[in-house]
Amino acid sequence: MRRQPALRLSVLLLLVTGVPAAGQPTTPPAPYAYRQLENPQQEAQAKALMESLRCLVCQGQSIADSDADMAGDMRSMVRERIKAGEKPEAIRTWLIERYGSWVSYKPTVEPVTWPLWAAPILLLLVGLWLARGRFRRRTR
């Protein structure tokens, strides 16, 4: 009967120490996740593109700066496609189709995003109109 608490304690200890180990990736990183392309021009294209793509895990970093496994996979994918001769804009378009426009730090102008592009201009015009009225009252 005294073995019950010891068994429970050992199961609990196994669960507490085993869960973090299970969260670690078991697969090796993608081939070009941390390795540059041999061609310096292609690597420069890849680097420029990677700096303009947002990490889907970190969200505040580009895939060039992120250490997340997903960012490593995306870096490798970008390098492999550029090595195969694909243009950076075609890769960006493919990634946007796959992950949505949020993945790009360079948003596109579409009918859905027109209010976002127009809002700063409209707010500036409203501010100038309000300031004009305020200055007119002071001069009288």
Rank of each mutant, 00 (worst) to 15 (best):
R3D: 07
R3W: 12
Q4S: 07
Q4W: 13
R8N: 14
L9T: 08
L9D: 08
V11M: 12
L12E: 08
L12Y: 07
L12G: 11
L13R: 12
L14Q: 05
L14V: 08
T17L: 15
V19N: 03
A21S: 06
T26A: 10
P28K: 15
P31M: 05
A33Q: 05
N39L: 06
P40D: 05
Q41S: 05
Q42H: 14
Q45A: 11
A46D: 02
E51H: 13
L53T: 03
R54S: 01
C55N: 12
C58E: 15
Q59I: 04
S62C: 05
I63T: 02
A64C: 06
A64P: 02
D65H: 12
S66C: 15
D67K: 06
D67R: 08
D67S: 06
D67M: 00
D69A: 15
D69P: 00
M70L: 15
G72A: 01
M77F: 15
M77K: 12
V78M: 10
R81I: 00
R81H: 12
I82P: 03
K83L: 14
G85I: 10
G85W: 11
E86H: 10
A90H: 11
I91L: 04
L95Q: 03
I96A: 11
R98G: 00
S101R: 07
S101M: 07
W102P: 00
W102D: 10
Y105F: 15
Y105T: 00
K106H: 11
K106M: 08
P107D: 04
T108I: 03
V109S: 04
V109D: 02
E110P: 00
P111V: 01
V112L: 09
W114E: 01
P115L: 01
L116G: 13
A118C: 11
I121D: 00
L122N: 01
G133H: 08
G133L: 10
F135Y: 13
R136V: 09
R138I: 01
